[in-house]
Amino acid sequence: MTWLLDLTPDEWNAVRLSIKVATVAMLASLPPGILIALILARGRFWGKTLLNGLVHLPLILPPVVTGYLLLLTFGRRGPAGAFLAEHFGIVFSFRWTGAALACGVMGFPLMVRAIRLSIEAVDRKMEAAAGTLGANRLWVFATITLPLILPGLIAGAILSFAKAMGEFGATITFVSNIPNETQTLPSAIYTFTQVPGGDPGALRLTLISVVISMVALVASEVLARRVGRRMDIE
């Protein structure tokens, strides 16, 4: 097993960077993910189908296309990119933040879908009961809706994290493949496969990828089961 952990500094950086990018992508997607899921589950307005299609676009488009669109919008000369860099000092292009953005966008449809399904499963009569007890809409959401959709929230977050760990096409198109900055695990593995004698390195990172994915999956199972038991939903 020791050879597995005998990584070069660059390889360690790729592992650390991947986890950082996936975590940030997941956490940053949660608030807008909940909001969009709520709108799609509960809202009744013209253009809902359009919004639904827009959210699902990254799932259908080739990842390279999504990455290129991100480059056009959030690149240094893109309208959103220029605005954010000028007013908030947030730069995406060729930075790890850009990798997180690409991963977040790619995982967004999966997250919204999971949360939306759990919101649709919430018994709205419970919310009405909370209303008669004096809770306004915000309190009802915080104390009734949110706890009831927690299993869906966890599932959505894990899906988003898993997608981010494996994201390759959009990331490499948007922020390229720069060691220590934007080189995530998949990009690093890809690089190894492109050079002679890179197979052992590729295999090491592949195994680490498998381990991280398994740990995330098991953790989510345990978490979901605990939440389920706490709620005693039979």
Partner: peptide, 30 residues
């Protein structure tokens, strides 16, 4: 939520994620 009218529903509608005590205390809060 501003009427201060209590309601008991046919299907109880207890909050499944709270204990009985938590359910009882819920309205008190507001």
């Amino acid at each position: 939520h501003k009427r201060r009218i209590g309601m008991v529903f046919q299907d109880a509608r207890l909050f499944p994620h709270m204990s009985v005590a938590g359910n009882l205390r819920y309205g008190r809060w507001f």
